[in-house]
Structures are given as structure tokens and as C-alpha cells.
Amino acid sequence: MHIVVCIKQVPDSAQIRVHPVTNTIMRQGVPTIINPYDLFALEEALRLKERFGATVTVLTMGPPTAADSLRKALTFGADRAVLLTDRYFAGSDTLATSFALSMALRKIAADFGAPEIIFTGKQTIDGDTAQVGPGIAKRLDYNQLTYVSRIVETDLDAGTIRVERRAEGGIQVLQTRLPVLVTMLEATNEMRRGSIENALIAARAPVVTWNATDVGIEDLTKCGLRGSPTIVKKVFAPTARTEKAVIVDADGSADAKAQALVEAIFARAPTVEHELNEQAAHHYV
């Protein structure tokens, strides 16, 4: 069994700064991390590896420094790391990203065996689109299971997989045939810590590095900025609201304060009080 996990190296957005004058992103000194959602996907893959003796390949598209994230994934216990990197990929939107990644996945299939399962995270914390996973599935014609909260059963002989998927208003239990692309929901598991042996293997493991030509991309207009139908025309900081909160000023006990606050709230939102009275009336008849 072969599993591929797509991970992305992202700036730790908690530490992103906006240039006060030009409103551009200042990445200086901002550490990069593995997109946190992708770790749930990786852990799920490693659990399947333990169960079925699978091989786990991690794949990322990004700048050469993204190799750090791949190496870290190896420390957790992945077996192989592939970095897709080329200046032609710069400025890719989700359509161009899923194209490039799907080409890399084709080469992975040819060189190392076709993956039965491709995992992605639910979404990234920088792009935040949740589109790349579905995009890859479509391009590779894989069945797609998004927002998976639990893998219930994987039957390699029958070639089926059964999962629980977070849907609107409930959990869907879905079954489909392998091969499949799964986007994993957050908080579904807890990332393990690799052993010292894993860490040593990871530190030594080469990162397979491919560029656009290596993965058989002939038409470079499908890549990067030119291959991206969406165009970011404007980036700006949210406008600050000028009016500030009216501070309820009440002295003394918590009760006095609470009383003053309740009055201020209902003065500001009389309909809320009205509706609460209606509800109460219903409750108590």
C-alpha cells in the first residue's frame, strides 16, 4: 500500500506583520511551520502505515526551504519526501497548484507505485481555501472524501474505504472505492513524536527534488501566475471602525455593575428583550 500526504509549508500566520505604510506583508523573521491541518492528515497516514505496512510519501510544492518541512515529516515516520520546486510555480493559485501537484503525483505513481490514498489537510492557514485537495482529486480522477473526521475501515482486498465525514448538520458515513483522496478534518488525532531512530533516518534521507520539466509539465502557461485564473488586484488592511464602545460605568458591587449592564444592553437592543419575554411566555405556559 502506498499513501501520499500533501503538506504545505506556511508562514506562522500568528506572527505575520503588515507594513504600516505600504500594507504589504512583512515576512521578515516570520517562522515557517507545517500547515497545522496537514499534521492530522500525516498522522492518519502513519496509523495506516502501522496497520497495513504501507509506505508513506510526503509531497510539497514550494521554495527550496520547504525541504525543512519535509524533513520534519520524515522525523515523524514518513518514508519518502518529494519537493516540487521551480520558479515557474511562483504565484500559483489553487487551480495552478492542483495542476502542478497532480503532475508530481503522476510521477510519484510511475516511479514509486500508484497511491491508494492521497491525503491533504482540510485547508491551509495562509491560502485558507480548502480547494487544492478537491482540485487534485478531480485532475487525477480520484474519488474524493472531504472533511473526514474518522476513517472507519479500509479494506485493501475489496478496494474500499469507509469514513465519517463532517457534513452540514451531521456526520455522513460514506463508502467508496480506492484510490481515493481524503482531506482530513482538524483535531481528529494527535501527532506522534518520532523515535531517535526515525530522527536519524530522517536527517539522512534525501529529499527527492523535482522541477516542472521533471514531472512532465510541457505547457508552462498552466503554471504559476500565468496558469492562475484568479488575480489578486488589491491587498488592504481592514478599515478601523471609528466609533468605540460605550463604556458602562458603574461603581460598587458586581451586582450593581451587572444591573447597569443589563439596562444598557436592553436600552440598546429592545427587540432582544421583547423576544426574550415572548420566549419566556412560551416556556412558562
Partner: peptide, 13 residues
């Protein structure tokens, strides 16, 4: 919103 809400961007197709 982009970058965790610290910026907004306007996107066209």
C-alpha cells in the same frame, strides 16, 4: 480575508 484575517484582498477572475 487573507493571512488569518490581518489583511483583506480583492480577487478577480
Amino acid at each position: 480575508p487573507t493571512f488569518g484575517g490581518s489583511l483583506l484582498c480583492t480577487i478577480f477572475t
